[in-house]
Design a protein around this nucleic acid. Structure first.
Lengths: 349, 349
DNA sequence: AGCTACGGTGGGAGCGCTCCCATGCGTGAT
DNA sequence: ATCACGCATGGGAGCGCTCCCACCGTAGCT
């Protein structure tokens, strides 16, 4: 039946490519998918036909026949506005995008906000409509990661949820980043260093606390609990925390904030109380966002290699997916990647 | 042959749903696709079977059979770093996402950087692998829009390329936004108002110039060409422009910058020269970005409803796609949408 | 009663691909 | 020269769906 197919006006099919190259459909398919079991002559003939016809495989047909989608989803929890702020979101996307540029995988963007959308996503995943999932900004109690493990869908998470993360993950070295920042303050002669922490149910925030403590301990400095207040990652939280710190420990000479936004809040209070930065109090933030660059004075901050993290996530996921495809023997990458941070020194410290 | 299909361990198929509901495959399909030509009894029976089995249509099969993809692409030109800065990218994505939340359309994110990637995208589009395209941050000389028109692929563009845009578009009212900002300065008693423009090959920047001029004309104020300098949308450009303005017109008492980033550059120069904001010179930016909120003093700025624009783009595209589907008679939306801006007043003005 | 009309329905064909089995041929061992 | 083996190849079957045509039954008409 298929014999007398006329060259339709539409896109060329594999069948047409095969006919033009004078080979069978199966052989053409082999060439296009890079199978080694094809002679060089044949390969060239098919390749020529592909080029002449401008053949592009039909994704849907391929997906249907091979039972895969050649797509991965980047799942973003929407209420998490922090993630949408610079620099996270766009940099992650860029990193992921660059890692996928040479692949013919598609990147699906999935924002999950309401519970209804979460349910939809779960259904989505259960229907195996993507080959893998990139999960960013996950809370410790989010059921999504477990769901993914149950469904046996390859997934990579950004930022570990704890120190015994089960999913493959990419994180930055929060402990070391914080330690370095505080060590820097110490090297500049600061001795009474406070820390405005993020929400401590976030593992990364815990690590930063640890780094802070470690730096103090190394220098043999006081690690008074009154020097540590939570700022909840918000500007208002940073303000409140700073006020409280000054009330309890007016002798402090430096503040390490767990985020630039909190540092901005802290700065306001410092100003209000007539304290100069860095004269009276040195200030360091975390994230190296636009706020840090444009603050007055410009804020020293810890930069995470977000784009690089996105790239690493994508690569990890792709290798994870490839490893599960039949015939592949490519060794799995080490599934827990921790990338180094960098202290960007400006005038606030 | 298909008769004796065993209930496989995998996802249920339409066939299984039909069998369970005691109807034919065609009827089950009709119910799932919301066709009106089904009796209520049957509809309920099928719906019940769907629920019990947890049936989710196989996207690939549907795409293959119906020759559509149920996916749209958000195409982002990568070198355009300005777009990736707050607030554009994330807000557009959120808007688009929210408009698509109730659809079962997928959002594909496509970053095009190098020419190779551009070529790939063109191939992609030629192969009709998406039902429509959302184009953001397009330059006047970008060949992509024309390609899309040629291929007859539904597309919506953000920001008109000129005042006779041919593609459906969503834009904010740059002219009115600028006019309002300058009028605000005038109402505060400013009389010698300069404008640091963006790159004038960007249509939006031209509109802002027009708005600036219009406001001055309305108030019967001087519109000296020396009061207008290009800042190229960069911070350094803003600095240079400000310096030049002060050299030529040291008597100016207000500056309207075409972006917050340029305003930040301008602010630095004003400070360096010992001028106070807003005492000596009032300053207004454009975009209402994080920079504006955290500048010292906080910067009055023109806010564009970016998220709303994203939503509008998605809606426009979806209606465009629906209109081309056979059987649909839904009227097309007006294809040129211009959304109002809002002046966010802070302390710099 | 006999005819048409039409809403509701079942299922064949086919979308374009991958998978896999069967076929044919060349090669080396005997 | 003969046999067995293996590599390159062709093409059938089938992935799960939509489209469409044929069919059935009932209602409304003459």
């Amino acid at each position: 039946m298929t014999a007398a197919r006329v060259r339709s006006g539409g896109r060329p099919t594999l069948e047409e490519v095969a006919a033009r190259a004078g080979v069978g459909r199966g052989t053409a398919s082999r060439v296009i998918n890079g199978s080694p079991r094809v002679s060089d002559r044949t390969r060239e003939a098919v390749q020529a036909a592909v080029d002449e016809l401008g053949y592009v495989p039909n994704r849907a047909a391929r997906a249907l026949a091979a039972n895969r989608t050649d797509a991965i989803a980047l799942v973003v929890p929407e209420p998490e506005t922090r993630f949408f702020a610079e620099p996270y979101f766009s940099d992650i996307v860029r990193g992921v995008g660059s890692a996928m540029a040479d692949t013919d995988m598609q990147l699906l963007l999935t924002l999950v906000g309401s519970d209804r959308e979460r349910a939809r996503l779960a259904q989505y995943l259960a229907a195996h409509r993507v080959d893998g999932v990139l999960l960013v900004s996950v809370h410790a109690d989010d059921p999504l990661p477990d769901l993914l493990e149950q469904l046996d869908i390859p997934a990579v998470i950004s930022g570990r949820r704890s120190d015994h993360e089960t999913l493959p993950s990419v994180d930055s070295d929060n402990l070391e980043g914080a330690r370095g920042a505080v060590a820097h303050l110490i090297s500049r002669g600061r001795r009474t260093i406070a820390h405005i922490t993020g929400r401590l149910d976030v593992y990364g925030a815990q690590c930063r606390v640890e780094g802070y403590r470690k730096a103090l301990a190394t220098a043999g400095l006081d690690s008074d609990e009154q020097l540590m207040v939570s700022g909840d990652f918000t500007e208002e939280g940073g303000r409140r925390a700073m006020a409280r710190l000054l009330d309890h420990r007016p002798d402090l000479d430096a503040v390490f904030a767990g985020s630039d936004v909190m540092a901005a809040g802290a700065r306001q209070v410092l100003r209000e109380r007539g304290l100069t930065i860095p004269g009276d109090v040195a200030l360091i933030g975390y994230d190296d966002s636009a706020i840090a660059r444009h603050m007055d004075p410009p804020l020293t901050s810890v930069r995470q290699p977000i784009e690089e993290m996105g790239r690493a996530m994508a690569r990890l996921l792709l290798s994870e997916i490839a490893a599960r495809r039949p015939g592949e023997v490519r060794p799995l990458q080490r599934p827990q990647i921790v990338l180094p941070t960098e202290l960007v020194t400006r005038f606030s410290s």
